[in-house]
Design a protein around this nucleic acid. Structure first.
Length: 492
RNA sequence: GCUCCCGUAGUGUAGUCCGGUCAAUCAUGCGGGCCUCUCGAGCCCGCGACUCGGGUUCAAAUCCCGGCGGGAGCACCA
């Protein structure tokens, strides 16, 4: 006979690598990247591409490049150069190489000149609207076919400051007759001199556009596989033109479906504004979808990874499911979370008929070796807090089992000790949690930003930073235990 | 308007390339049960899907055509 529990385990082991293999991936030779714009800390949307790339790099023993795409001086939060690596680190993403695009400007200029040399780029000084209109019709602007000597001169003028912002761009030629208008000639470099760059100041005034710098960096950094969202489908086609012009080896591209994250504010600019106005307490405000907020709420990086691996890399668009993420998180956190009592609707109840009680409640029901929470109750009468809703549930009078303590007969706010016979639970007696009179005031911050106040049993300082479970309430992450207990709601 | 991508249960996912073993997998969710102590975990049972129509074929979730539906792009953002 085969042990069925072993069989169960085996199935789980087999499911460990649900991500498909990457074509042409050779152990030790895979190079992949994560390429965020430094506009702020990472949010849940970023974590998918970061983790998936990391997962593959780890599988193939490859190289993970974190490439900071800071070629738009207008959209840079200088702190993001630090916060992004911090977030990646917390996520468990192993970065082997970090590249900052603003340090590679000469390379982009160099490639731009080579592109001009081979007749694949031109400087356009048409008004933006006119150039777009021509493109729509599949027609060339007057600058497109000018000789390369002229193009070089014009490009020099762009660099020298002769042209003001928006009056000249270097355009990469593709195919003006391409049936897809999104693929026709695209801007490779533009002028930005109204805003100094946080890292390079006013040293440069011509900046590459994403499609330009991405193609160049993907090549020179040796990307073998590029995994990214479907929104880049057209960008990939544009970038491939550059690869083909130079005869570069094109990486294997894969575009997974878009993720829509419900009930969550992700857009960095909106969040930044909200923080500034005081609407949000910071990047880790529990209402936000940032990595920082998830961390604060007690969501583990392992659960985030489990979730994205489970979603896979299909090109179908998906709905992000908080519910499923919480389920994965619960699997990670439940074995670790010690149990404590928290009464969120406290009503003081007196227990007659006994003067001393001591409870021995396990820190974790599945791990008795961790020890007990011992609570001594004394008094005449003994006083405890119960949840008002629990009292109401038995009507005007009835029996309750105080978990890990004793049974009581209740009438109003008065209770009588009724022994400690555990067999009553078989009769369907309601088991409730309770907190001694000397419990600690507790505030739980809920995901919507509201606060739930109540009283908890004392929690040791060693639990600060841990996710614990308030029994019959939820999992929460402890932020402080003194003078009051502060916790953040994780999930049920 | 043009171009591209996609369509398996509430949400994800396996299967689709190389038709049959798929009256369709797993997870999550929901409902019920077990459990001497949680509205947690675990265990058991149940609910729930191949977008539609046509074609090819002995046989289609899988191949072909069309409709419908969803998404993306057509930026001097990334």
């Amino acid at each position: 006979m085969i042990d069925s529990s072993l069989l169960q385990k085996k199935v789980k082991m087999e499911k460990e690598h649900p991500l498909p293999e990457l074509p042409g991936a050779e152990k030790g030779k895979v190079v992949m990247r994560f390429a965020p714009g430094p506009s702020g800390p990472l949010h849940i949307g970023h974590t998918r591409v970061a983790i998936l790339n990391d997962e593959y790099v780890k599988r193939y023993d490859g190289t993970f490049v974190n490439r900071i795409e800071d070629t738009n001086p207008e959209k840079i939060d200088p702190e993001a150069y630090d916060t992004i690596p911090e977030d990646l680190d917390w996520l468990g993403v192993k970065v082997h190489q970090t590249v900052i695009q603003s340090s590679r400007m000469e390379l982009y200029y160099d490639v731009a000149r080579k592109l001009i040399d081979i007749g694949k780029a031109y400087v356009c000084t048409c008004p933006v609207e006119k150039w777009r209109k021509l493109k729509e019709r599949g027609e060339a602007c007057p600058h497109r076919e000018l000789p390369k000597e002229t193009q070089h001169e014009e490009f020099d003028r762009m660099l020298s400051g002769y042209y003001p912002e928006e009056s000249a761009v270097l355009v990469v030629k593709t195919d003006l007759k391409h049936p897809n208008p999104a693929i026709r000639d695209f801007v490779g470099l533009r002028i930005v001199d109204s805003v100094p760059h946080p890292r390079t100041g006013t040293r440069y005034r011509v900046y590459p556009m994403m499609n330009f710098s991405v193609a160049i960096d993907d090549h020179f950094l040796g990307m073998t596989h590029v995994l990214r969202g479907k929104d880049h489908l057209n960008n990939t086609q544009r970038q491939e033109y550059i690869f083909r012009y130079f005869g570069w080896k094109i990486p294997w591209y894969h575009h997974y479906g878009l993720v829509s994250v419900p009930e969550s504010i992700l857009k960095t600019s909106i969040v930044a504004q909200g923080i500034k106005s005081g609407e949000y307490s910071g990047w880790d405000d529990v209402r936000l979808g940032t990595v920082r907020a998830l961390k604060r709420r007690g969501i583990t990086p392992e659960a985030i990874r489990d979730y994205w691996i489970d979603c896979g890399i299909k090109d179908v668009d998906i709905q992000f499911s908080w519910e499923t993420l919480y389920a994965f998180n619960k699997q990670r956190v439940d074995p670790l979370a010690n149990r404590y009592f928290f009464v969120w609707d406290p009503v003081l109840v007196s227990i007659e008929g006994i003067e001393t009680l001591e409870s021995h409640a396990p820190l974790h029901p599945n791990h008795p070796e961790r020890g007990m929470r011992r609570l001594r109750l004394q008094g005449r009468p003994i006083k405890i807090y119960l949840n008002g809703t629990d009292l109401e549930s038995i009507g005007s009078r009835g029996k309750l089992r105080l978990k890990d303590l004793c049974n009581i007969e209740v009438e109003g706010n008065l209770a009588t000790y009724a022994g400690n016979d555990l067999s009553v639970v078989r009769e369907g007696i309601k088991i409730v949690h309770w907190v001694p009179e000397y419990g600690i005031k507790t505030v739980v911050e809920m995901p919507d930003g509201s606060k739930k106040e109540g009283i908890s049993e004392p929690i040791p300082p060693s639990e600060i930073g841990n996710v614990i479970q308030f029994e019959r309430f939820a999992f929460v992450k402890i932020e402080a235990v003194n003078p009051i207990i502060k916790a953040v709601f994780t999930h049920n």
